[in-house]
């Protein structure tokens, strides 16, 4: 209890309002100490910025063709020009611009799918875990059935029937990915609902939606966050794979997977057509994984303390010794 004493509860509440800002700053300080995590966060932030400001920073229109400059190599080759820093493809479109715009699709699809699949999966898992009985049996058998059904086949069927588009990709990937959230949420709910504070809420007379969303869900955030971020990486790859197969994003829109697919025909003449978007995919997935592993560390209180002690023990020890020295009475034995 380090805060100054206040007289009334209202005052104390008002004083407390900005606590989250402090914990955010604390988080930032810890991130600075974890180098891989920091790199991951920087990469993701720049990817997001790149995606948001794509029209302003990309040198060319990604779909503008220039048949006079087909398959131009990157700038460091003799034939390369600064006009097309990373070269052009078989239709003379600028590779750099396409890659920048490709980030938009990847991140958009990733976010949308994580929100849709995560939202649905978490609600299903909460209900299955808390209500139990028939609801539980029904939801879990549904999940089992869907997990047993080959995901790619489902995707192919849906895409063949509806026809490929950005929205369909999101729908297909969400349908394929919600089960993992459902299962994880259910098992976490089963353990949390045993805890006395949930029983306390029941005894007090809370109805089940309040118990689920007010008492159980907030205590699930850190494992769910880690799962969502890892799923995000998987979705980025899945979108690229679908687009590579021609089932995802359709030209003239761009996507990293689509670019790799088109570039593969010219692999031996123009290596940069596959390599650049390929690298973009790899870097994104790597960055997300770095952030995820840092988050996992941070969300484990014990591990977080250890990490903190390793970095801060020296400074803290010095401060403590100085404080003790000041306190020591001269006549003490």
């Amino acid at each position: 209890m380090t805060q100054p004493r206040t007289d009334t509860l209202e005052q104390a509440l008002a004083q407390n309002r900005f606590e989250w800002w402090d914990s955010l700053r604390e988080l930032g300080r810890e991130l600075k100490r974890d180098k891989p995590g920091l790199i991951g966060v920087i990469l993701i932030t720049s990817l997001v910025l790149m995606a948001v400001f794509a029209p302003y920073i990309s040198p060319h229109d990604p779909s503008a063709q220039d048949l006079t400059a087909r398959l131009a190599p990157p700038v460091w080759y003799d034939k390369g020009t600064w006009n097309h820093i990373l070269g052009t493809d078989h239709l003379g479109r600028d590779v750099l611009s396409r890659s920048i715009h490709g980030a938009r699709v990847s991140l958009w699809v990733g976010t949308a799918v994580v929100l849709c699949a995560g939202g649905f999966g978490v609600v299903m898992g909460l209900m299955a875990g808390y209500l139990g009985g028939r609801t539980d049996a029904f939801i879990m058998r549904w999940i089992d059935t869907q997990v047993a059904f080959p995901g790619l086949l489902l995707a192919l069927i849906i895409l063949a029937v509806i026809g490929p588009s950005l929205t369909t990709v999101v729908v297909v990937l969400s349908l394929n990915g919600w089960m993992v959230y459902g299962r994880m949420t259910r098992s976490a709910v089963l353990s949390i609902r045993q805890s006395p504070y949930v029983e306390a809420a029941e005894v007090v007379g809370c109805r089940w939606p309040r118990i689920l969303f007010r008492h159980i869900l907030p205590n699930l955030t850190s494992p769910l966050l880690t799962l969502a971020i890892l799923e995000f990486a998987r979705i980025v790859l899945a979108e690229a794979a679908l687009s590579f197969l021609g089932l995802g994003i359709q030209p003239p829109a761009t996507s990293w997977g689509l670019d790799v697919a088109m570039g593969k025909n010219y692999m031996f003449m123009a290596w940069w057509l596959v390599t650049i978007p390929g690298c973009a995919i790899a870097v994104t997935v790597l960055a997300i994984n770095l952030v995820a592993s840092w988050l996992r560390l941070i969300s484990d209180p014990q591990e977080r303390e250890k990490q903190y002690a390793r970095h801060m023990a020296g400074v803290m020890r010095k401060n403590l010794l100085a404080a003790l020295e000041k306190e020591k009475p001269p006549e003490a034995l």
Binding site: N16, Y197, A201, V204, N219
Partner: peptide, 30 residues
């Protein structure tokens, strides 16, 4: 409203993500 329970474990019986005011006011609220 007429019968309540006091728990054994004071650490586990309070939701760690709720402020004391939210915990104590919950019965009144619901």
């Amino acid at each position: 409203r007429d019968m309540q329970l006091v728990f054994q474990d004071p650490y586990a019986s309070l939701n760690p993500r709720m402020k004391i005011i939210d915990i104590v006011a919950e019965p009144l609220l619901v």
